[in-house]
């Protein structure tokens, strides 16, 4: 993959409606954002660590943001987060949990595992777009990470 085509944001989300809404909101303020959407945790880890169908790519530690839902097929969001933060090659990757859950246990567990931020999916279209646009702007254009 050429540097200029490199993926900036990885969205891991299995719900088609939420995927459509999040993709629209993420690209609303930044049409050129390079986004990849995957539907389950195992596929996300295969992509990040260049395994299986991605084995001829490099490890994806240049991503500006990994946006993870909590409930995912095969491997849930917290397990994906745990793996990313445990592995020193990817520990500095910014990971944001984007979920419908306001459960205190989910929030606490995510922070314990080293999540950078936890965002509850807002209700209502306008609110959703505003929140996710702010999220994309912050992590893609304001936050810095080591190369």
């Amino acid at each position: 993959m050429e540097k200029d085509d490199a993926i900036e944001v990885l969205l891991v989300e299995d719900n088609p409606d939420d995927t459509e809404l999040t993709t629209h909101a993420l690209t609303e303020g930044n049409k050129t954002i390079r986004l990849l959407h995957l539907k389950d945790g195992v596929e996300a880890l295969n992509f990040i660590y260049a395994k299986k169908t991605y084995e001829n790519q490099k490890i994806q530690n240049d991503l500006k943001l990994v946006l993870l839902d909590l409930k995912l097929p095969r491997l849930d969001g917290l397990e994906v987060l745990r793996k990313i933060k445990e592995d020193e090659r990817t520990a500095t990757l910014p990971v944001v949990i984007l979920t419908s859950s306001r459960e205190k246990r989910d929030i606490a567990e995510a922070y314990k595992l080293g999540v950078n931020s936890y965002v509850v999916k807002p209700v209502g279209f306008d609110n959703y777009v505003k929140t996710i646009s702010s999220l994309a702007f912050y992590w893609c254009l304001v936050n810095e990470k080591p190369v």
């Binding site: 606490a108 965002v119 509850v120 702010s134 702007f137 912050y138 304001v142």
Partner: peptide, 14 residues
């Protein structure tokens, strides 16, 4: 952006 994100978008831990 920083202030809005961390005050109004991020969910603080309990």
């Amino acid at each position: 952006s920083l202030a809005f994100y961390w005050s109004c978008v991020n969910e603080r831990p309990y």
